[in-house]
């Protein structure tokens, strides 16, 4: 009966993962390997294709002033294009934070935690979750963006000016190793919940109920990995080890963003991302 409860939890979290996250790993892998019936993604590999591909970028959240005017074809410098692309990226990230928040709220027991602790768990967990989810969209040559409509090459991201060029490379390195574990979407749902329910985030008021919730999800993840990957030795331990790398990645990411804020006078950070990154590490 206890294992039946854990299976039910795994099913529930997988269902809410499918409900809140628009691009699953299964779908992303199909697009990346060219196995979808739809059209192939638009490839951005240089400044010219970036300018052309902007029309495909899903930017529901962009303020009107950010949209290209009818005079958009007047000479634009590469740095303007880079900056505008970064803005769009940010708005998609803020939308992704909202998706992760809805997913967190669907974890049984999460909304009963102290509201301040819910905020702390999200503040510290959300970038880790987004990095893990981005790994699903990456291969060694590039990554899908805009809900899978665009493939942006790794070389192009590396060619941007400093410090933009340094933003994604560590995530690619992480993703290539993480993807070797071959987790599927149902495993990912549980792993993301484990990350969110970390009882050691700074400033938590009431750690015990968080640890209790995490313990149940950890047992579920362990059982799930044994059943889903019977031949993969020590997979549970390997997955948990990734949590250490993630913290370092987030730390480096936040420092890069802080550097950007100093060097790019025209850059304004989305208010939600500001809230999350302020005094994070």
């Amino acid at each position: 009966p206890e294992s039946a409860d854990l299976r039910a939890l795994a099913k529930h979290l997988y269902e809410s993962y499918l409900k809140y996250f628009p691009l699953t790993k299964a779908k992303a892998r199909a697009i990346l390997s060219g196995k979808t019936s739809g059209s192939a993604p638009f490839v951005i590999h240089d400044m010219k294709s970036l300018t052309e591909g902007e029309q495909f970028i899903n930017c529901r959240q962009m303020p009107v002033m950010e949209q290209r005017s009818e005079f958009g074809h007047v000479q634009e410098s590469a740095s303007e294009v880079e900056l505008r692309f970064f803005h769009r990226w940010q708005y998609r990230s803020a939308e992704a934070v909202r998706e992760v928040t809805e997913f967190a709220k669907s974890i049984p027991g999460f909304v009963s935690l102290d509201l301040n602790d819910q905020v702390t768990l999200l503040k510290y967990g959300v970038i880790e979750v987004l990095i893990i989810m981005t790994a699903s969209l990456m291969n060694k040559d590039g990554m899908l963006i805009s809900y899978g409509q665009i493939f942006m090459t790794r070389e192009f991201l590396k060619s941007l000016r400093k410090p933009f060029c340094e933003m994604m490379e560590p995530k690619f390195e992480f993703a290539i190793k993480f993807n070797m574990l071959e987790l599927d979407d149902s495993d990912m749902a549980l792993f993301l919940a484990v990350i969110i329910l970390s009882g050691d985030r700074p400033g938590l008021l009431n750690v015990k109920p968080i640890e209790d919730l995490q313990e149940t999800v950890l047992q579920t993840l362990e059982l799930q990995l044994k059943m889903n990957h019977p031949d993969s030795l020590q997979l549970f331990a390997k997955v948990l080890q990734k949590m250490t790398d993630l913290r370092q990645l987030v730390n480096d990411h936040v420092h890069l963003i802080q550097l950007l804020k100093k060097t790019e006078v025209d850059m304004c950070l989305h208010p939600l991302l500001q809230e999350i990154m302020k005094d994070l590490y």
Partner: peptide, 20 residues
């Protein structure tokens, strides 16, 4: 609480889309 206004709002509003 003021420091994390939007996060609070995202957590407290149920499924309705939040103006980010």
């Amino acid at each position: 609480k003021e420091k994390h206004k939007i996060l609070h709002r995202l957590l407290q509003n149920s499924t309705s889309p939040v103006d980010l």
